[in-house]
Structures are given as C-alpha cells and as structure tokens.
C-alpha cells in the first residue's frame, strides 16, 4: 500500500453514479448495476437502465468470474516516468459471467500467455489509502 502522495497513476474519482462501485471494491466486492424491471445487468454505471429506461437500479455482487474478450500489451510507457517500471503490462476487456465488460489489468501471468476467452477471476489491489482497484488473474 502506498499513500496518495507517492502513487503517480490516475486515481479514480468516484461520482454519484459510480460511488457504490468503488465502495464495493474497498470491501473486495465487485458490484455491477442490476435493473429489477427488465433484468439487465449494467456496467459502467449510469442513472437509468440503458436497456429499458427504468430508474432506481440496484447493485448486485458479480461472481468475479469472467473471460478475456480482448487485450493489449503495453510496451511503450506513456507517460514514461509513471509506467516505465510496469511495461510490459496487459490491459484487457474482461467479459464477466454476468454479461457486462470491464476494463482491467491481467496479472499473475506472462503477457504472452494471455489468450482470447481465457478464464479469469477478480482480485483486489489496494493502491492508496482510499482506492482499491479490481484486477484479474488467470482462474
């Protein structure tokens, strides 16, 4: 764990739509929005259900299981001083078992080992006193 002062990467700023998601991460719970009216699962969060237009969406805990939908291997760090120690690193669009996609990093394996549809599961990493990021590792 590092303090905010020494953590140089972008820190997510929760807003009224997203605050429950980031609060969930702090409790190691991966939350997505759920529409009680039509059953649609939603991420990223919004004020209305994008499928049926209903308001008052609830939050439900996702299983944390998913698969790699697409991924990139960042080899040239931008900005350089911030990511120089991290390259190569993998950013993936993870398709959760609940049907929504979520950008994250794939950790716990070599970038070369990531393949399409690879099963992954969520793991949580505390990066500042306030912020916990949901990352994924091979399942």
């Amino acid at each position: 764990m590092s303090s905010v002062e020494s953590y140089e990467k972008p820190i997510p700023v929760p807003d009224p739509d997203s605050a429950p998601f980031w609060a969930g991460c702090r409790e190691s719970r991966l939350l997505i929005q759920h529409c009680e009216d039509c059953g649609h699962n939603q991420f990223p969060p919004s004020n209305l259900c994008a499928h049926c237009g209903a308001g008052g969406l609830s939050w439900k805990q996702a299983s944390g299981a998913g698969k790699v939908f697409s991924w990139i291997v960042v080899r040239h760090p931008v900005p350089k001083p911030v990511y120089a120690q991290d390259v190569p690193y993998v950013v993936a669009l993870v398709e959760l078992a609940e049907g929504v996609r979520m950008p994250s990093n794939i950790i716990g394996c070599s970038p070369e080992d990531v393949v399409a549809d690879m099963p992954v599961k969520v793991t949580f990493k505390q990066v500042t006193d306030e912020v916990v990021l949901p990352l994924f590792e091979p399942a």
Binding site: P12, P44, M102
Partner: peptide, 27 residues
Amino acid sequence: RALGPTQFTAPFGWITYPQAMAMWCRR
C-alpha cells in the same frame, strides 16, 4: 485523469489512443 468515463480506463494504464485502438484490433 480518471474521472467520468476515464475512471474505468485510466487507472489500469489504458490512456492513449494507440492503446484504445489496439484493443479493437486485437478483437
């Protein structure tokens, strides 16, 4: 920065346009 739409992308080091479009290309 990681606020609004970028709060779900930038914290994972997904920041530049080449990084964005590479995700499409891989798929």
